[in-house]
Amino acid sequence: MTARPTKGGALYALPNALWLTFFFLAPLLIIVAYSFMKKGLYGGVENEFSLRAYALLANAGIVKVAFRTLLVALAATALTILIALPVGYNMARSKNQTLKLFLVIVPFWTNFLIRIYAWIAILGNEGTINGFLRSVGLISDPIHLMYNQGAVILVLVYMYLPYAVLPLFSTMDKFDFILLDAARDLGAGKLESIVKVMLPNVRSGLVTAVLFTFIPIFGAYAVPLLVGGKDGYMLGNVIADQVMKVRDWPFASSISMVVTFVSTIGVLLFLARQKRPGVSKEQAAALAAEAAVAAGGGR
């Protein structure tokens, strides 16, 4: 639809634009500015240009955490997508779509932190698994299931799986499955027909799914903090520590810039994808919203 030139339009959008300029854009620009300043003596910043905060990024400890963050995010995203593909496919071809959709969404109406807490209750030394193993006499000392990378990845997959399932389901639902039969008739194998015929057709859903899992996982804070312990620290935890404990705002800002930079690359790829014919911008936006909303926050 074309927008009509009218005087009133700007008035409608003005309060929204002012709010987001003040409370979203301005804070972001402050972070950008701080990342180029010197650390103040007692927290805060000194009004002087400096690249110190970026030089600190080369610090071995930070490089190690950044590398771990990337690895954990890639592993968790890959696992999530691998699980979400058959799940979305199954839902799209189901006759009970409403029920199957409902079952996916309901667990995620539970508060984000309570879901993390539930995993602690399962994996902890006093948790369900250890309790069970003890009661059947298999172990006497608890096995340590928490505070390692595996636990972080497991819980992250749990948290972000619906973000991948929902957009994949939405695009697969619009796919005409008769094309698969056609491919089979023409001699393609079962897996071949899915990979070569269906996947290219649901690519927009796939890209949405990857982004909506990778970006929040890359910036994860709560999950690595609560189930990862010190060894599971990710970039988000380092940023928080720099702000709250060390009070080195420029350094926290420069790490935030790195996280933002990585996310932005992802988003640019996403937007480039949407320019392809077949998926309109609105559809893409709706898909993105659907994924975020149905999963009930906890980004």
Binding site: N16, L20, F23, I31, G219, I239, S256
Partner: peptide, 21 residues
Amino acid sequence: TLNFLPMILPEIVIGISLLVF
């Protein structure tokens, strides 16, 4: 654009920037 960006930036960045602001 302003109504799109906050949805895709990691929460930690939004949280920190608001705190500093």
